[in-house]
Amino acid sequence: MAEDQVRDHITIEDENGEIKDYSVEALFDMEDQSYALLTSNEDTLLMRVEEEEDEQYLVGITDPEERESILHAYEIAVEANPADE
């Protein structure tokens, strides 16, 4: 991605109360769930998008098998349909 391209950004407070900024790399649906793939300089997060009373919020995925399964399926989908550059 070119340096001058702007990504959506989100700020998350972790379980320790630390505030971190992330770029939204992807939003996608899988098995009737919506997910967000977030990146920062230090790490990558996969979070589930939940809706309640017309509001959306992010929920961390704590099950490592669920996380790996979703990331693997996402990688296969990206390889099958690469983004135009």
Rank of each mutant, 00 (worst) to 15 (best):
I76A: 08
L71Q: 03
A36C: 14
R48F: 02
Y74T: 07
D84S: 11
D21H: 03
D21V: 09
I12Q: 03
R48P: 00
A77W: 04
E13H: 07
D84E: 12
E51L: 01
A2E: 15
I10N: 02
T44A: 09
V6M: 09
D14T: 10
E55C: 01
G60T: 05
I10W: 09
T39D: 08
V24D: 06
R48V: 02
Y35D: 05
E66A: 13
M47P: 05
E65R: 06
E18H: 08
Y74Q: 03
H72L: 01
S34V: 01
E3F: 15
D21S: 10
E52M: 10
E51Q: 10
D84W: 11
D29C: 12
E15M: 07
D54Y: 06
H9D: 03
S40L: 04
L71F: 00
D54N: 11
M30H: 15
E85T: 12
Y57K: 06
Q56W: 06
D4A: 15
Y74E: 02
V6L: 12
N16E: 15
M1C: 14
E18D: 11
E85S: 11
A36H: 11
Q56G: 01
E52H: 10
V6H: 06
D14N: 15
E13Y: 12
S40F: 01
P64M: 03
S23P: 03
P64T: 01
E31K: 14
E55S: 00
L58Q: 08
D32G: 09
D29K: 12
M47T: 13
S69E: 01
V78D: 10
I12N: 02
E51S: 03
Y74G: 01
L71E: 00
L27N: 13
L37R: 13
A80R: 06
H72N: 02
S69M: 00
P82D: 01
R67F: 05
F28C: 05
Y35F: 14
T11E: 07
M30W: 11
T62C: 14
S69I: 00
Q5F: 14
Y57W: 14
Y35K: 03
M1W: 14
E31M: 07
E50H: 11
V78Y: 06
E15Y: 06
D29P: 12
H9C: 07
A36Y: 08
G17E: 09
I61V: 10
L45V: 08
E25W: 06
H72E: 01
Y57V: 04
D84V: 13
S40V: 02
N81A: 13
E66Q: 15
E31G: 07
V59E: 09
A36N: 13
A83Y: 04
L45H: 08
L27Y: 15
A36G: 13
A26I: 04
Y57G: 02
M47W: 06
D8S: 09
M47D: 07
S40Q: 05
